[in-house]
Nucleic acid binder design. Structure first.
Lengths: 219, 219
DNA sequence: CTTATTTTGTTGAAAATTCAACATACTTTT
DNA sequence: AAAAGTATGTTGAATTTTCAACAAAATAAG
């Protein structure tokens, strides 16, 4: 576990918990580390929602596939970030989404029961953990608002521009990389891939953006 | 405050807190009740996000308006439900959305600071409150997933059908009322109002749904 | 280095959405 | 009860998106 110290220290879930306490706690919570190859499923839609996941290395994607086979990507999760916490905490029976590893990844899994129901009152870090979980969920809610702000736009161009502006703000620079290839970006924005390619081409020709592969720049 | 007992008891935020404790706590939290006329703004986009709101009577709508004036409705909030908790708990400075009263409404406002930062360790109900808040946020996240599942569909018809199916499931009946007029439903689904009317007409003609005003039935 | 495979860009046709304008129905007010 | 105002339905034209099919570019494999 020690080798994950840096990643775990950056995890919002463990804010204000000392490194010493952290390892004791992880033991008490029954945290385990599992490795996944690229494109392997971490949680399948419909499976029980019992575990919280934390990305130790690599990255993951949350997505849904509807009746007609259309994939919609909900979010991209990087190192130190938490996922599936909402499903576990809300104590719903089945996962409404799928989670896959985007690349070879190490994932920490914690049974949410151990966070919510065990030694509820006593030990100090449980209280802190719940508090951190609450904050994390609040931030996640805001991220969803942002995603909805992007996808609620009516045209591919507006969705794309709104997305790029958020990414630029997040990177604190007009120049940044995005974590998606074209098909994934289309599935995140809920638009057609070829139409998205056309729109990127237009914005380049109009001198509004510059782009090469996953790198974008707002001009 | 006593007259609001029933509504407050149904509020998830106060689950597992006795009525007696509740009123003591509301005093300690500095909860206040404010009335709003129909269409009046409860929280304006850009204003400080300090308060959590609870609908005591009436209802509220959360929405965003973009650069071009397009309104997108995020959710409809009814009695006993909490709103704006994510913004207050994430301690962001400005509200990214607006909240208006949908009808004459009474709203309880609680300064989130009092929940998060005051007497953090001691009194029992604070702990319970944080726990309840965490659960509430987890449920909210799932509701957002559902909204995204609906709006990620590519066509008006599919969005409408997905929405109606969720409403039917929520009502536990194929026959139910929706809380939106046509323009509001269009703004919730992020589609054109007239196109939505056409689609409702088609589904009726095809015998897939029945509808009169806000009442719908899946056949 | 060459070949296979995957990703991205391009195109045109079909389908759907948006937009504006108006007709009709329904509500509220006077 | 009439008038005014609001909400909903309808229509056709313009725009956009989707879809399928293919070309070109980039990447991976042999």
């Amino acid at each position: 576990m020690k080798k994950y110290l840096d990643v775990l220290k950056n995890c919002k879930l463990f804010e204000n918990i000392s490194a010493d306490d952290l390892f004791v706690m992880l033991g008490c919570l029954g945290a385990k580390v599992v490795s996944f190859d690229k494109k392997y499923t971490i949680f399948a839609e419909g499976s029980p929602a019992r575990h919280i996941g934390i990305v130790l290395s690599g990255s993951a994607q949350i997505y849904q596939v509807d009746y007609y086979g259309n994939r919609s990507i909900l979010s991209e999760i990087g190192p130190s970030e938490v996922f599936a916490e909402a499903f576990a905490c809300a104590e719903i029976t089945a996962m409404p989404v799928s989670v896959i590893a985007n690349e070879p990844s190490e994932i920490m899994l914690i049974d949410c029961d151990h966070i919510l129901h065990t030694c509820k009152n006593n030990c100090g870090f449980h209280q802190q953990l719940i508090f951190n979980l609450m904050k994390d969920l609040a931030v996640k809610t805001i991220l969803f608002h942002q995603k909805i702000e992007i996808t609620s736009k009516r045209s591919t161009r507006e969705k794309l521009l709104a997305y790029l502006m958020f990414q630029s703000k997040k990177a604190n620079s007009p120049s940044f990389d995005i974590p998606f290839d074209r098909q994934e970006l289309a599935d995140y924005l809920d638009v057609d891939r070829s139409g998205l390619s056309v729109e990127i081409g237009k914005l380049k020709k109009e001198g509004i953006i510059d782009n090469r592969k996953n790198h974008f720049e707002l001009l």
